[in-house]
Structures are given as C-alpha cells and as structure tokens.
Design a binder for these strands. Structure first.
Lengths: 259, 259
DNA sequence: TGGCCAATTTGCTCTGGGACAAACTTTGGA
DNA sequence: TCCAAAGTTTGTCCCAGAGCAAATTGGCCA
C-alpha cells in the first residue's frame, strides 16, 4: 500500500449537496397507521406483544430516504435512533483529507444510529443510503425506556453491537495481513452473504455498488478493483455490469481469499 | 503493503506454552480481605456505596498474572469478566497462519473480557499481559445482576465499549488511508497518551514494548519499525532502549503523523 | 564471567499495487 | 435524440515497504 491513495474520488461536496434533504424536508408520519407486522418479526421486537409494538409504532416516525442520502452525519448529536425497514445503508467515515472509508454495510431489519448503546451522545460515523431506503426512527430520549421495558430489546441490541464489533475486528485483521486480492474477494463474499440475492448465473449483490465503493471497503483504489474484477470475469468467477456485481463461483473466490 | 508480512515472528507456540498457567494454577483469593478503595475510585463503581462495593469484592477473585500470560483466549467461553487493577494488557487476534494483530491496549482501571456487554458468550479476542498484572474477576453469571443493580455500572461499561469501538474505527481508517510512518507515529502518540509516564527527557511508554509489538499494532514489519525509530532517534524525536521507548518531542510526531 | 538468546539494526533486492493519464461506455435528463 | 456526467477499463511508470540475510547488542542465567 504505497502513496496513501491520493486519487480517490472526492465525495464530500456531493454528500453535502445531498444532506439538505435532511433539514428541508418536513418529517412526516405515514398517515395510515403503521402495521404491527412491520416490527413483530424483527429480533429486537420479536418477544413483544401487540400492545407493546403498537405503542412503539405510535412513537415512531417513518421516513423514506433517496439513494445517496445521509441519514445522519458523524459527530452530530445522536438525536434519534433508527430501524431500517427497507434498503441498505453504508456506514462511512471521512478523513480530514476527504477520503472515505466504509466501516460496514447494514441491511434492512437492523437498528442503526444506536450511539446510546455504546455510551455516546454523538454519532460515531456517517450513514449513507446505498439504495432508496425506508426507516423508522425514535428520539434518543426513549432509548432507556426501550431497554428497560421491552424484553429482548437490550439483548438483541447488544448482539447487534457485538456483530459489528466482530466485523470491524475482521476488517482490521484482514487489512493487516491480507493482500488486496484476498481482501476484495473477502469483501465480495461477505456482501453476497449478507445481502446477496440468487439470480440465474450466480448470486448478485442486492444493491448498486461501484468499483469505488468496493475500493473504499477494502482500502484500495477503484483502478485495482476494476482490474481484479476484469480478471475474475475473464476466469468466469463473476459477472458485472455498471454498479452491479454477480458472483458466479463463490467457492473459487473462497479459495482465492485464502491463498 | 506488499507480500502479506511473511516474516513475522511465529508466536503461537510461545503463547500456548504459557497458557498452562491458566489451568494448572489454583485460583485463590488474596486472604486479607480486599480493600474497598481498590474499586471505589474506578468509574464503573464510583457511584456505589461501601456496602455495595463490599458485596462486589466478596464475590471477586483476585489473581496475579505473569508478563506474557493469556488471561483468556479468543473463542473460549466467556466464563468470567475482569477488572484490571494493575498492569497492561494487549488484546490480540491470531490469524490462521499464525500472525498476530493487536487490536488494542488496556491500561489498569478498565474492565476486560466483557463479552456479555456485546451479546457474546465467547471471548472475541485473546488478552495477553504486557506486564505483570493484577486483576479481579467475577463469574459471568453475575453480569446481569451487576448491570441491573449497580448504578452507573451499565453506563460506564457501555462507554468503555464505545471507546474501544472508536479506537478500532480509528485504526481501520488509519490503516486504510495512512502511510506506515504516519501509522507508527500515531500508534506511539496513542500509547504515550494512554499509558505514558513522564520521565526526564520525555514521556516513556509505561510497559515493555518491542519493535515486533509495535509492528503488530500498525500492520507492518519489525524491520520497518526499527528503521523508523532509528531515523527518529537520529532526529531527536525519540530515544529507545531494548523494549523501552521514550518520546522526546511529541509535537514533532504529531506533525509527522499528519503530513 | 562467559555464553546464550532475544531484541535490534542495517544493507540489499524485488514487487504489489498506487499514481497518473486517457479512452471508452453507460445512463439519465433536457 | 443527444449531451454531460458518472462509472469503467487499461496502459505505463515507479516507489514504499516487504522479504531476506547477516551482523550486532544487550540482558539474563548458570
């Protein structure tokens, strides 16, 4: 890794251009009352009865986010916490020089913005939607009540934190010990595992992802990712079009990722 | 970062040779009752009254660990959680190929092995003493009671988790975007900040640390670390003897770490 | 006090993958 | 339908830092 990745695309301006949406758009509740089945099958709420879920939903705000929107920004006071109902979110950190590093991807069904669960009152990273997304949110002041009153909420929350800690740990170890090719292979495998969708010819990553995104996830450059994907495509391991990647031969990727 | 760091010292055998201590040495309580002042000034226990601390201490097991001992190993069932009273602990992960990656350093006064706080029932990493150390420990089954009954314990615990998540995050970003020289400089700065001790001529890292250790903390090789330290020593930024590093000019290191 | 081992230093070589440049392709909006 | 912007591909150059080898130093134990 030489040279500090100077040619990464500068994205801050683009992002700032989008965050106006956060401030200018009126938050509005979806008027037909939210249906209980939205939450009842999700782990943090699975053990609750209808009445409890009703109460939780009545306090929630529902909101749609366009693709590429920041749900919240690193350093902002953590005023709300979210449950992602649909879509995918990238959690990114931005360096002083404007480079982005993707910490993790969050699929629908998970909590995010749970700064309170790790004793923070500001968000530790920025959450950007990777697709159009839908999320419920609650003001952070309700957090303690959720933890105290809702059976299983605390447990599942801390499990989520644990999973993310584990994932971060894995990334540290990978970045410290593996070659770029192995890291990219691992990243792809993790993505199809977490968010893959079966299509004919393989498993496709279920949201649009650019070479750039993948490079931010693996600490390399979009050029190198492009070269790797081209090579793999030639060998029949993957197919890809613009913003779309399908893994045809996961096993071969596993082999690659371990060599 | 080319070549996957093949020449790192192989340490597994050494470590395994040490862990026998865990199993063979009888756990024993220090017989003169533990003094309440041990805990009363530590954040997780600061808000408790004497009676509560007494009760906590009476359930604790006190134990000394030689330098280089594994307090617990990655993957083991998390049977106990610990409060480090004296010494320093390195939290490391070991790859299938035997390379070590240091995730973080824990100084005296902090909890460790708190798998329960992140919803796990096995330890996610190995904790090795960097110095001779002293720790109290409690069986994990007491965890929920601690959280529920002791005011401030939960809060402080989750703050600890949050700090460590933050530190891991920082390392990911550093490894993804910075040169080796900057990473090593940052690591040194963090070490003197967390565990530094003023001596004449600068601030010394308060525990023995080898070039190898530093390389495992910064994802590089001991050779490169050695070269960097030599160069810095020539410029008067640091002095070092075997296993000891003193930073003479922290400010210059900060400058280096940002360039 | 001498011997041994761990830790450190230093020189040399070699290469993975970053930097830079430029062309090409797809897509969405006017 | 066409254009501009975003995304992708590919070629060339080059250097930071890993790999390897060997010498040196310092500390500890017998």
């Amino acid at each position: 890794m030489s040279g500090g990745l100077k040619n990464r695309r500068w994205r801050i301006s683009a992002m700032c251009g989008m965050t106006w949406i956060m401030d200018d758009m009126p938050i509005r509740k979806v008027l037909p009352r939210l249906d209980e089945s939205l939450l009842s099958h999700l782990p943090p709420f699975a053990r609750l009865d209808t009445r409890q879920i009703r109460m939780i939903l009545d306090q929630a705000v529902s909101r749609r986010f366009d693709v590429g929107t920041a749900i919240f920004n690193e350093g902002d006071p953590a005023e709300r916490f979210y449950m992602l109902l649909d879509g995918y979110v990238r959690v990114v950190r931005i360096t002083p020089t404007g480079e982005q590093v993707t910490a993790l991807h969050i699929p629908a069904g998970q909590l995010l913005g749970i700064a309170k669960a790790i004793g923070r009152d500001t968000y530790p990273a920025t959450a950007v939607t990777a697709t159009e997304s839908l999320a419920l949110s609650w003001p952070t002041r309700l957090w303690d009540a959720f933890i105290a009153e809702y059976d299983g909420f605390a447990t599942e929350t801390y499990k989520t934190v644990g999973d993310r800690v584990g994932e971060m740990n894995t990334r540290i170890v990978e970045m410290a010990t593996q070659q770029v090719e192995q890291r990219v292979a691992n990243a792809l495998l993790r993505l199809i595992h977490q968010t893959g969708r079966k299509v004919d010819g393989g498993i496709e990553i279920d949201f649009p992802i650019t070479r750039q995104d993948l490079s931010e996830l693996t600490a390399t450059t979009l050029h190198t990712v492009s070269r790797l994907l081209s090579a793999w495509e030639k060998k029949g391991l993957v197919t890809s079009k613009r913003k779309r990647i399908t893994v045809c031969d996961p096993h071969a990727l596993v082999v690659l990722s371990q060599s």
